[in-house]
Design a protein around this nucleic acid. Sequence first.
DNA 1: GGCATTATTGTATATTTTACAATATATTCG
DNA 2: CGAATATATTGTAAAATATACAATAATGCC
Lengths: 237, 237
Amino acid sequence: MRIAKPLMDPNLIPYFKAAVSVDNVVFGFDQSGLKVLLIYRGADPYRNCWALPGDLISLDTDLSSSAEKVLQDLTGLDKIYMEQIHTFGKVDRHPFGRVFTVAYFALIKIEDYNIHPSSWAEEAAWFPISEIPDLPFDHNEILLFAKDQLKTKIRRQPIGFELLPKYFTLTELQKLYESILETEFDVRNFRKKILSMDFITDTGLKQSSVTHRPAKLFKYNAKKYSKISSSDFAFDL
Amino acid sequence: MRIAKPLMDPNLIPYFKAAVSVDNVVFGFDQSGLKVLLIYRGADPYRNCWALPGDLISLDTDLSSSAEKVLQDLTGLDKIYMEQIHTFGKVDRHPFGRVFTVAYFALIKIEDYNIHPSSWAEEAAWFPISEIPDLPFDHNEILLFAKDQLKTKIRRQPIGFELLPKYFTLTELQKLYESILETEFDVRNFRKKILSMDFITDTGLKQSSVTHRPAKLFKYNAKKYSKISSSDFAFDL
DNA sequence: GGCATTATTGTATATTTTACAATATATTCG
DNA sequence: CGAATATATTGTAAAATATACAATAATGCC
């Protein structure tokens, strides 16, 4: 039995209303480690501060679409890996009034990224995860949440590849896991484990233009993974 | 460097506004299995339908407090284990206008529960997890989300105890894990594992008034657990 | 050819997981 | 009281997985 929608005046909810925004924690990774994309705010409040990229939601846009749009405007990238983290709704979190914000984290391939100017962002830049400045609103708290979520998530699902170029070396992959999990792995054990999980493939290619033994290049094998239930994957090295 | 709050007119955000609600997925457990608490709506829309207990948020209440309040009004219980799951924000999810809802899941000891009438709930009842009716709004989707979250969570953190009485038998504990994870465990292996994790204690007491060999009663030992990092706990039997 | 630099690989041991069934303790009933 | 009924409790061997640990290989450069 489907419940039919009542046909009533889809007017206003007779109740208090608030603004709703989305804020994105955008992670990137390069040889110097894990980074977060911050924007230099061009609008009040907190104009001229570094902050998480976010925007108020317009009433005709779905929540998830809003988050995607913010990121697409900012990076010009499409099909970005995003996930909702948490919603923050303290009464006084915004100086202009009641604003709920829904936080997302996103993983992007840093080399694909190009700054696109936008209405609310004068500038954007990557900050190493260990050198995040004080941020306005509750953005530092949100960032902490995102960092933690990423840590939990990467141990259970092969999402790290979203941060790497199409072809990557095992050393790069290991550095990525080490940056996110803030730990170090034994080279042999790491390789044994990651290869046994069977979702990366040796492309047969090798690094070029390096001044030492070139490493094999691997690629992520999404198809193989999709057959595996998420509970079977655990990176507990 | 702390960023000072700008002293501006904390008036209205010059933007679209929406209502925000919280919806709770309240889990309970007894010998017949895992259950969810639904209310019979006494208010429009969807008056006279079974639905998740939830309410619109008033502007002077923090998000998390709102979720707690809904549950306290409904159950009369205090200090309930709650966790935010996800925020749902499709444009047309509410027939009266744009309403975002933040979903929480809560775990309560079913024996402590007493129905308290409330403004929006004429009645409340426990539904077995496998016999949930069609619900209004996107409540079935929310419920699915909550079920999945509970499954993930219980494998990583000892939250199952929130659903059990203070003293419980190992058989009850096993049935709880089996209900939530929708699987079955070998009795010996289950006991070995759960006991090795060292957060339940034999009280020395035994079941009484049973018509067979009485089981030992155990209790949850929160202190022991608090020393352990959450990543060390994994119920991968 | 030798040096510098990073990549690659295997094995033995310890730990954890899995599979599997006989015995114990209580109540009830005849 | 003994037998029947019902659930609780416990151990061990084999398999799988995780851990600790260091020597050799391949490239560019001088």
